[in-house]
């Protein structure tokens, strides 16, 4: 009886044409752990109104790429900046754009999304930041975090997270991260810590399925995030170094326009070999 059941289960698997190996990241030779040195804090006056494109703030913001880390190893990039004595806003945008048909269109869009995003080209990198003194990683060698153990006066251990890059989600859910292709940002108050070194960690959560290289753009801006209002189109061209960037420029232009423009673009490219959008 048991043998028959087992056989039935095995037979039930016939027809699965996926081994799962195609989802394994490829070894591209792109480093998985990098250190980017010290960043300047950019004045918001230097940010163009229609978004930052590659090369516009050269040496002030960073366009980079991360390869897939070995299994069991955390990948990512680190850099430092000096506190200004006031609030600064750290902005990170992984490639490229993400949307679903189910989400409400943004206020300035003229209708809903008609097609789904091809998620295989998207990266997901997460943002953390805090005082460099609390950072546990080795820049360029090993990605760490900002966690430590505090023992109270009764001898009870408590985990403390010194990460100051706190993002809130829907319904004020604390300490969240954006998903694939979605911009992340947080405000860090450097009051009374002017000149003190802060470390920012761009932690690899997922490299794109299609090329295994996570492209991103990141920068530190003076002042509160509210004044900067970062969103998906704040950084443009964040895929510039990627191998499969042939359609990203047009896709991002369409996405940063309105839903109708994106729908038209998607419709024109549904039959492409590597389509930017899917009709499901």
């Amino acid at each position: 009886m048991q043998s028959t059941l087992s056989l039935l289960l095995i037979l039930g698997l016939v027809g699965c044409d996926s081994s799962g190996f195609e989802f394994r990241p490829k070894n591209t030779g792109v480093p998985a752990v990098v250190d980017l040195g010290e960043f300047p804090v950019v004045s918001p006056d230097e940010v163009p109104g229609d978004g930052i494109t590659a090369g516009v703030l050269d040496g002030m913001v960073h366009y980079g790429e991360l390869g897939a880390p070995d299994p069991g190893v955390t990948g990512g990039a680190t850099f430092t900046f000096a506190g200004t004595g006031g609030p600064v806003c750290v902005v990170l945008d992984p490639e490229a754009v993400y949307w679903t048909k189910l989400e409400s269109p943004q206020a300035d869009r003229t209708s809903g999304f008609a097609y789904d995003d091809n998620v295989q080209d998207d990266a997901d990198v997460d943002l953390q930041a805090g005082l460099s003194a609390y950072y546990t990683g080795s820049p360029g060698v090993e990605i760490g975090d900002f966690e430590a153990i505090y023992t109270d006066q009764m001898g009870q251990d408590h985990e403390i997270v010194f990460n100051e890059c706190l993002q809130t989600g829907y319904s004020n859910t604390p300490n969240v991260h954006g998903g694939r292709g979605t911009v992340e940002y947080c405000e860090i108050d450097t009051d009374q810590r002017g000149g003190v070194a802060f470390t920012v960690v761009v932690k690899t959560f997922m490299v794109p399925i299609d090329d295994s290289i996570a492209n991103y753009a990141v920068g530190v801006f003076d002042g509160p995030c509210q004044a900067l209002a970062p969103e998906e189109c704040f950084f443009r061209d964040e895929y510039t170094l990627g191998e499969s960037s042939d359609y990203f420029s047009e896709l991002e232009d369409a996405f940063c326009g309105n839903a109708r423009k994106l729908n038209n673009y998607c419709e024109d490219h549904l039959e492409d070999d590597n389509p930017p959008c899917l009709d499901r």
Partner: peptide, 30 residues
């Protein structure tokens, strides 16, 4: 709580963990 802090405020307050980013420390209740 692990104890009471009678010096940081004008009233008895639970003992706190380290002050981070200028905020009052977490009292880490049991």
């Amino acid at each position: 709580y692990s104890g009471i802090d009678t010096t940081s405020f004008t009233y008895p307050h639970p003992a706190m963990g380290p002050v981070i980013a200028g905020e009052a420390g977490d009292a880490f209740p049991y």
